Simulated scan of single mutants.
Amino acid sequence: MTSCDAPLPDTLAPDASRLTVDTAALVANWRRFARAGAAAACGAAVKADGYGLGARPIAAALVAAGCRDLLVAHWHEVAALGPQPDGVRVAVLHGVMPGDMARALASPAVPVLVTAGQVQAWKVTGRPCDVMVDTGLNRLGIDIAEARSGLLDGLAIDTLHSHLACSETPASPANEAQRAAFADIAAVVPARRRALANSAGIGLGPGWHFDLTRPGIGLYGGGASPDAHPLAPVAGIATRIIQLRDVPAGASIGYGATYTAAGPLRVAVVALGYADGYPRSLSDRGRALVDGVPCPVVGRISMDLTIIDVSAAPDLAEGDWLTMDFDLAGSAAASGRSEYELLTGLGARYARVHT
């Protein structure tokens, strides 16, 4: 959307910036990961409010496309998804922490047990579960020795999980070491399915796919593609011009007077800042796009406002909408933040618009 496009209905928080979510692009990305995983079922990580884009509509679009495994981090995220159709399975990656048991037992979701204490507490319920084993990430998970000790005996394990540490570095020897360690433990722990590969792990090849893959960032247009084609961008930011002003040569712009106009500028002050998750580190590095013409951010980004040099777009008026350049890879490189941080850091003030 450019400043010349018809704005979305003002019933959608007319004074707020808009976070547009292309669910068709999301589904297209999921289908590509599903094809790359071949015979493995393809799930979807929808934790952190669907990576900041709205978990409920994200999940609904993926389920409609055929996804049958959704993964969240916390039990309250299960409720946020809303009821799911028969055959759709929700797994909670942090397992059952103290105080979670009553909610877990009342929930249709299943825990991914990650500690020996969680295993012991859940075992007495007799209910199905998943289990995470640690194969080298040294984050969450049952140790390999614990998994071989008989600790898991008597559990009704649906899916045995592990997580790769270096999948975004395909040449790392850690990937094969973890794959081999997981295959070894999976051979002795009875479970209906095995799951190892995240988005980048799917691209490592069939040896990492096992029975279920768990793409996350790739669904939302970030990270490496599982094939030779680029992933479709999913998230976009549109923001409204509050004020247009002329800045003379030699005048400074923004807090700290960090930017000085080399010549006369026409600037737009827009309703977007770091409280919306637009990183302060994009000061003098970010840009808007007006009919494809780049318009750079000038001066320091503040909590609620960003200033953009729109000298190249003379037809803009106050109240017009600007599209920010929110290419994930480019924004990550420019801001020094990861693509994960950029997405999940998007604030609550946006009017989220799912198309």
Rank of each mutant, 00 (worst) to 15 (best):
M1G: 11
T2Y: 00
T2E: 12
L12I: 14
P14W: 13
A16T: 00
A16G: 08
S17Q: 05
T23E: 14
V27H: 06
N29S: 11
F33Y: 05
A41S: 06
G43N: 03
A44M: 05
D49Y: 09
L53T: 07
G54D: 08
A55V: 14
R56Q: 10
R56K: 12
I58Y: 03
V72M: 07
A73P: 09
L81C: 11
P85K: 09
D100A: 08
M101R: 00
R103N: 01
R103T: 02
L105Y: 03
A109M: 09
V114S: 13
V119G: 03
G126A: 15
R127T: 00
T135Y: 00
L137M: 12
L140E: 15
G141S: 12
I142K: 08
A145L: 06
L151A: 05
G154N: 15
I157F: 08
C166Q: 15
A181Y: 05
A195F: 04
A197F: 01
N198C: 02
S199L: 01
L204G: 04
G207Y: 03
F210D: 04
L212C: 01
T213V: 07
P215T: 00
L219Y: 03
L231I: 13
V234W: 01
A238W: 11
L244F: 12
D246N: 13
P248A: 13
A251H: 13
Y255K: 15
G256Y: 04
A262I: 02
V267N: 09
A271G: 11
A275R: 14
R280Y: 06
G286K: 08
L289H: 00
D291N: 04
P294H: 06
C295G: 07
I301E: 11
S311H: 03
E318Q: 00
E318V: 10
D320H: 14
W321D: 11
M324Q: 01
F326S: 13
F326W: 11
S335W: 06
E339T: 13
L342A: 06
L342E: 06
Y350D: 04
Y350R: 10
T355C: 13
